[in-house]
Amino acid sequence: MSTATDTSKIEIKGINRIFPTRNRGKGDGPREFVALKDVNLKVSKGEFVAIVGPSGCGKSTLLDILAGLAKPTSGDILIDGKKITGPALDRGIVLQGYALFPWRTVRQNVEFGLEIKKTPKAERKEISNRFISLVGLDGFADHFPHELSGGMKQRVAIARALAYDPEVLLMDEPFAAVDAQTRETMQDELLRIWEETGKTIVFVTHSIEEAVFLADRVVVLGTNPGSVKDVLDIDLPRPRHNSDIRSSAEFGWVRHKVWELLQNREVKAEGPHGYGPSVAEAISSSAEL
């Protein structure tokens, strides 16, 4: 907004992420593992972008870099044209494992970011009420996480990430741990919340269906090295929530297209390096905070 020349909210410029690996045994294999190679992407304000890719393609690493939790080996992330230097409250993050603080009630969890922001108590309460209500958890404010179901916990996590009013919401496979039915409900809910709040969302998933259903654009990442394979515009009509769009022919076609892109890449992934996806996964998940 401040830089009127460019409309993109997020700009990912030439991101590389290389992990050094320990050389086991006497083999002269590669000494490093390229998790991300020359990733470039622009995300407009208010856009919903999904990133799909097979496990080990570095999509979670990319999200960590966006959140400022990991540093790229080279390249920059710009938000509103300004280079990010670390985690900050302009970006909210929702992780797969809920990451709620079990010793805090729903309300206290939602207020966590506001406490860090040093928001006054009365204002905190007013804000947390609003967001607890937004995610449909009225009446559960004083419950502890262990008293909630998986879907409800994820709602709390979303409310917590929204409460401190970030402009960008980063989501790392947020619905991977909930059952299939809850997952669809949560996807509907997320679209409703997105439309109500107008946030820019970057959503990482390994489910093609989820990506196609939610996003304006789907970024397909390939493995080894992780790089942008293709970016697809999803021209499915909106609003998509509470609709049967998943069973439409158009939806199926887009889904298939993404699938083919991924398949293509998968074949190549069996390349000469011999790094299985599990190795890559192990490395990306042990990435430093």
Binding site: A67, G68, L69, G86, P87, A88, L89, R91, G92, I93, L95, Q96, G97, Y98, A99, L100, F101, P102, W103, R104, F112, G113, E115, I116, A157, Y164, L170, L289
Partner: peptide, 28 residues
């Protein structure tokens, strides 16, 4: 739980606050 620390870190929490608000309660 590293996920708890990660989500607190994503909000730009200071090291002191991380200990008082996350690590200590979690370890209690």
């Amino acid at each position: 739980d590293p996920v708890q620390e990660k989500s607190a870190a994503s909000m730009g929490i200071s090291p002191g606050e991380l200990i008082m608000k996350v690590i200590l309660p979690a370890a209690l």
